[in-house]
Design a binder for these strands. Sequence first.
DNA 1: CATAACTGTAACAATTCTAGTTACAATCTG
DNA 2: CAGATTGTAACTAGAATTGTTACAGTTATG
Lengths: 141, 141
Amino acid sequence: MAANSQFSMAVHVLMMLARSREENLKSDFLAGSVNTNPVVIRRLLGQLANANLVVSQTGANGGTRLSRCPSEINLAEVYKAVSCGEVFALHGRSPNQDCPVGRNIEAVLCNLQKEIDHSVVEKLSQYSLQSVFEQVETAET
Amino acid sequence: MAANSQFSMAVHVLMMLARSREENLKSDFLAGSVNTNPVVIRRLLGQLANANLVVSQTGANGGTRLSRCPSEINLAEVYKAVSCGEVFALHGRSPNQDCPVGRNIEAVLCNLQKEIDHSVVEKLSQYSLQSVFEQVETAET
DNA sequence: CATAACTGTAACAATTCTAGTTACAATCTG
DNA sequence: CAGATTGTAACTAGAATTGTTACAGTTATG
């Protein structure tokens, strides 16, 4: 199950931005920390920018910074910003509609999915970037 | 993000089994309702059997049935049984260990993941197969 | 105002996952 | 023993994700 690695990457990038508040960071530099290609980072930053979590600037000396201070952004916002993310997916081929279970199961699962997603969001909303930042900084390695 | 379609499929299959309590169902028949290959079903049933949710019988007139009645099985058990499932994945390549964020982010995300997973499980444990079964049966289609 | 440093994004390639398939040994029923 | 059925390995196909290359559009700065 390759779930959403976008989310992890987003948090990683946002931590970097939280560290260097005010200063623009380049996609190249961020890519170096995440260990991926700058384009991958720029794509991600695009999603975060759409959700108004970051601001990017093109041109020389451009780059990206947080749009607000880290205590005013929570992980639920990040999750929604990048979320292609459902906890479980429906089966690729649709079930047999001639079967009483097959006919109805999708709707039921879909509702369930919404409820689960809701509780994930609720949990994530308890964490601000600031609180995650503190965890990262105080971690013993 | 193609999350865990295993879970949906498991619930579907378990609904079928809940319907025909006592009677063994064949993987071939279940595959017909889910609209997939019998081997895919048998693999899934293997996981459910490991978790003691179902009992299978080989040989002629074999098949699978629930190990307990539907009100005694909840969705958290199902989730755990099939779960390769995390809500978000870590990035494929590991982060740059020379970066203070890269060095610590994985551990922090990993803890977060556990917490999220915990709240998903908590939510799912509120639903018994019986209650889902009732939703499927009363659905208007 | 020319140049070099960046972002945004499209188009394509490579890789990795997941699901589906085939095949067959092992097991059971009657 | 014959026929039905599961369990599982090994392989294939297809989908999804991630990475790469390329380049147009922006902007700071000498």
